[in-house]
Design a protein around this nucleic acid. Structure first.
Lengths: 103, 103
DNA sequence: ATTCTATTGACAATAAGTGTCAAAAGTAAT
DNA sequence: ATTACTTTTGACACTTATTGTCAATAGAAT
């Protein structure tokens, strides 16, 4: 199982594409320092940035978005003993909401 | 399936115990207004408040805490299409962490 | 040494969350 | 309808988080 963080994965992709922070930051229209921190997990990524990065690197946004969301989730439950139970309850609710979306 | 919010459930329990907001708020050492808002979902509940309420109402804290955590999770994924996938990834990671906790 | 890249920390600006209070609204009983 | 009690609402100050900007520093490559 992959235990890579989103930031680490994004850095890896950027290096594969041989793009410097400078250029990517320019495309994102954010400061290099922020992007650097995002890749190292010192600053939070936003959904918008993740989507833009998927475009820039021409990769499937879904995988990145799932990782992005799951990290936000992990952050909420931290090391709670009841984390797993809470996840299961959340899953049931999401399914319920999806089933009743149109109603 | 229960689609009740934590606040609604807490209000219900309080009413079953026939306690006014005033008294519970005093026990919690918070303002009545805040408790009122918490029960109606206008203010966020904290883990501490949830635990204290479980004591006050003499009910099992686990159920309340699971609901508390799952609401925080739901808040993060909102109505994201990928929410369910993200939940599954988070679950895998939690299990992984739990398995490697002592290492 | 120079150039390009990346990291760090300080700082200000902004947004988000919290606590306090008092006025207003709702409820029930007499 | 007045009284007593409970609850809701909104304004406000206060604190805490988050975010953006910038410049100095460090690292790597040539």
């Amino acid at each position: 199982m992959s235990t890579e963080t989103l930031g680490e994965k994004l850095r890896q992709i950027r290096e594969q594409n041989e793009l410097p922070l400078r250029k990517v930051a320019a495309l994102l229209d954010i400061d290099v320092a922020i992007l650097s921190k995002m890749e190292r997990g010192e600053r939070k990524l936003s959904k918008e940035v993740v989507l833009k990065l998927a475009e820039i690197y021409k990769c499937n946004p879904e995988e990145l978005l799932v990782l992005f969301l799951s990290e936000k989730i992990m952050y909420e439950i931290q090391d709670e003993d009841l984390g797993e139970k809470a996840l299961k309850v959340a899953e049931k609710r999401v399914k319920y909401l999806k089933a009743n979306k149109t109603k």
